[in-house]
Design a binder for these strands. Structure first.
Lengths: 262, 262
DNA sequence: CGTCCCATTGAAACCTTTCAAACTGTGTGG
DNA sequence: CCACACAGTTTGAAAGGTTTCAATGGGACG
């Protein structure tokens, strides 16, 4: 019934990596032999429209990779902004912490997506970036990137596009948070994940949630109990098949109908 | 009690412009004699960090101004993206319309703020930009801007900053929509308006709302009745003095306390 | 095999919406 | 100049969705 396949060997399921819980800060830097040209995310990542000579220059900038263990922070609120990060494998959440200790998740980041775009202007990070599972990122020093962009129109354009599309994405989420019922939010969330998995070349209708019900609820502005109830309701309605974190979208049309307009 | 002063002669109160309701599309283009160097918004607008020789080149790009009558559209969902717009006077709302006809406001734009940043990537506008009152914008053709940015590091940097800060702003709003009660949302909204009026050099605690209760509610994800009730409650609590669209923040501290954390 | 984290489910409390009515200021037409 | 129409606002009462509090169940790891 729930033929959850191993979607990608590079992205272990959450189940398989439940460890290292109490040992954060396990971050290692190293210079990897893998360049953008041979990266499987080449088509969806920042340099996706760069040609061979420029791609090499870009490669020199992102020479450094970084591994982040599950639960560890790639950066924290208050850290000075020095680089953008492209997720190579794994997944991250961006989370703000209030003085009262309340957490609010502002985004999830999957392979091929970029972390840190909101920190360019204030020059400091305003959120924590926490790995949801053992992950790896490409470090893109911003000063060097900006400098290269000035002499590489294609890169400049791509950066403007990237920033702009991030704004679009956030505005879409604002619509979601501001005018949708909990039911619509969850349906929209599942469809969004589906699209993003598909974008990076994986199965669109069958995936493993990288985050807990609590994290989903936090992100969508509802409680974890509501998420749980809705998951059950969606399952009863035949829209999805869900077992723990394995999700199969059985009726994408139906989900889109729930989201309705927009 | 409510000593509502005429904040700025360039920005008439909404009361004074209640007309031309049924006559949209009243847009006129012209080349104004006012350059950025002599603009009163110079300190807060895009070219705020450009020096004299570059500022002139920039000025040549934004030679064109455009007037938009109350209720008219600066651009509409689906229009091809050709320019960014800086609000010179007046106010705009950005609004998405669903197939069902539901409207959702994604942002309000005051003088010195930029419209269209979300449309760079898709090359088409995804929302309608509607004038809340008779307004004027500076037209910044994007192709020319991008070209100048490539040869003007200061401009490129400023653009990256602008885009990035828009992302920050949206994420702040996501926090608001996703995890705040209606009470907190309205308090945060009023404080946000206050900050923005102050930024453009006006009184921070005494201003005229450019939008209806319905528009505020739509934007904040609650109903107009809720906004109305909360306004009354805030007034009874001595936090604000409100009469129609004239608002005075009597107890900024108290409002901030309501918003609480973040 | 026990512990712990995560997920599920129920019932009451709460906030917000919905539906409805009345009120206010503004602009129009007699 | 007044009466009317209308858009926007205010307020009430009932209905609805979501949260809160609480208890139970399930899977993974030591």
């Amino acid at each position: 019934m729930l033929q959850t396949v191993a979607i990608n060997p590079a992205i272990p399921t959450s189940r398989a990596t439940t460890r290292a819980k109490g040992s954060p800060r396990l971050i290692s830097d190293y210079r990897a032999g893998v360049g953008c040209a041979s990266c499987c995310l080449q088509g969806v990542c920042l340099p996706s429209n760069l040609e061979s000579p420029e791609l090499d220059r870009f490669d020199a900038i992102v020479a450094q990779k970084r591994k982040v263990a599950r639960g560890a922070a790639l950066y924290r609120n208050g850290d000075t902004f020095e680089a953008l990060y492209a997720v190579r494998s794994g997944a991250f959440k961006s989370v703000g912490v209030s003085r009262q200790g309340d957490e609010k998740i502002t985004g999830f980041y999957l392979p091929g997506e970029m972390l840190g775009l909101d920190s360019i202007s204030p020059c400091r990070h305003s959120y924590d970036a926490i790995a949801l599972e053992d992950s790896e990122v490409c470090v893109i020093p911003y000063a060097a990137l900006e400098q290269m962009a000035a002499s590489t129109p294609a890169l400049q354009r791509q950066l403007f596009r990237l920033l702009s599309s991030d704004i679009s994405r956030d505005q879409g989420l604002m619509l979601l948070l501001g005018s949708m019922s909990a039911e619509q939010r969850l349906a929209a969330f599942l469809l969004s994940l589906s699209r993003r998995f598909q974008r990076m070349g994986f199965a669109a209708n069958c995936f493993v949630l990288r985050m807990t019900r609590e994290e989903i609820g936090n992100y969508l502005g509802v409680t974890l109990e509501t998420i749980s109830r809705l998951m059950s309701r969606f399952q009863r309605a035949g829209l999805i098949a869900v077992q723990q974190r394995d999700v199969e979208l059985s009726d994408v049309e139906g989900l889109m109908e729930i989201v309705g307009h927009w």
